[in-house]
Nucleic acid binder design. Structure first.
Lengths: 211, 211
DNA sequence: AATATATACTAGCAGTGCTAGAATATCAAG
DNA sequence: CTTGATATTCTAGCACTGCTAGTATATATT
């Protein structure tokens, strides 16, 4: 590594300083997101206030607004992390699968366990208001990738991939939400999963029959 | 209508007055709930503040707390109305059906249209925090009835009624939420419905095979 | 060392849910 | 009709929220 002498590479030095600054900013930003996520998971999203986050990163409140437009944007940042991690979890499930049906089963289990183990994260992704765009041109790659990962496991069983993936996704999401809010019996968790898997596989045959 | 004379029926009079009072109270309470519902549907639940409701019913804020423990309880009251009406909509769909499959189709359409036409009402029922109990002994009859209505249309196609109903419900709920928040394509709405119907019907045969 | 610029802070606004205590209306008894 | 007791309603305010204008401070450039 080279060290700057007095007058050599003044331009280089300012660049390096700017870089250090940018790094500092980026670090601080991810500290904000991380703090939001931790507090949300421990005490719920209501406990994630600007004041609390400011206290956590040891800066004043206005600093947060130099990183995010508003509180919703912080939630959105957490959500993007979530989509990224969900995508990883789904692709891991597929990679370990022994066949198409097993991939479907593993992905389903991975999705549900992801959501139920990190309810606040999932809430940021699907329930809380964010400025994220979906099913559009400007959709962020993390979101697209997660959707694609789901599509991969559904495709072998269904002709119309997009429709099937959207519907399958809806089922998983509905199961998560209703279970999380205590509207369906936790005890029947596994039975519902088997039911879904069977339905997806069976729909394959019926769509062959009826066009 | 009878008018009270001087000393005739003092007991009757007080009873009648108390009755009138109670009626007044009940009326005011339903005005609160109605106002909350209207404002929520027009401007979103964030616009439903205690001050706004107080203004709407032309009383001071503390009056609201003599009717409801807190804001969530008002949301819950709206939600109960919603469950009642959803139950009616589902039973209507069943009554007009020409057969089991048609009943399933009509109920599905009724559920989705109910939710998408009154998003704020649906939000109160399923998304916003309330003190309502589900899948328990103290579950309110309105909620039970709506669940039963769904079970009725699912039963002909599935062995394990409760599991099938919960899963079917989850699918409908997921479709509503993902469509409402723009996460799946509105254009594919009908295709997804057909897909769900086909899957439910097909699962019947497969469960005969493997179950 | 002086000036210009970016950065962070203090203090405050308008709004929220909710409530204690004062004021008012409504009632029963004399 | 007047008095005293009882509900009922209101005023005023707390502690909190997201967010921001204006000021102070630290940093970089001449």
């Amino acid at each position: 590594m080279r060290r700057q002498t007095g007058h050599r590479g003044l331009g280089e030095q300012t660049l390096s300083i700017a870089e250090r600054k940018g790094r500092h900013r980026a670090e601080r930003e991810s500290r904000i997101v991380a703090a939001a996520r931790v507090i949300a998971e421990r005490e719920g999203w209501n406990a994630v206030t600007i004041r609390r986050l400011a206290e956590e990163i040891e800066y004043s409140q206005p600093v947060l607004y130099s990183h995010f437009e508003n509180r919703d944007a912080i939630v959105a940042a957490v959500a993007v992390e979530g989509f990224q991690e969900l995508g990883v979890a789904l692709r891991d499930a597929e990679r370990q699968a022994t066949g198409p049906q097993n991939a479907l089963e593993r992905a389903t289990a991975a999705y549900l366990s992801f959501a139920l183990r990190q309810p606040a994260l999932y809430e940021a992704m699907f329930v809380l208001p964010t400025n994220l765009r979906f099913a559009e041109a400007e959709t962020r790659p993390e979101l697209r990738a997660a959707f694609e990962a789901l599509a991969t496991v559904v495709t072998p069983f269904c002709a119309n991939t997009d429709v099937a993936t959207e519907t399958f996704w809806a089922t998983l999401h509905g199961l998560v939400e209703l279970e999380r809010s205590g509207r369906i019996r936790p005890s029947a968790h596994d039975e519902r999963i088997s039911f879904v898997i069977r339905a997806v596989i069976a729909s394959q045959n019926s769509s062959r029959d009826s066009g």
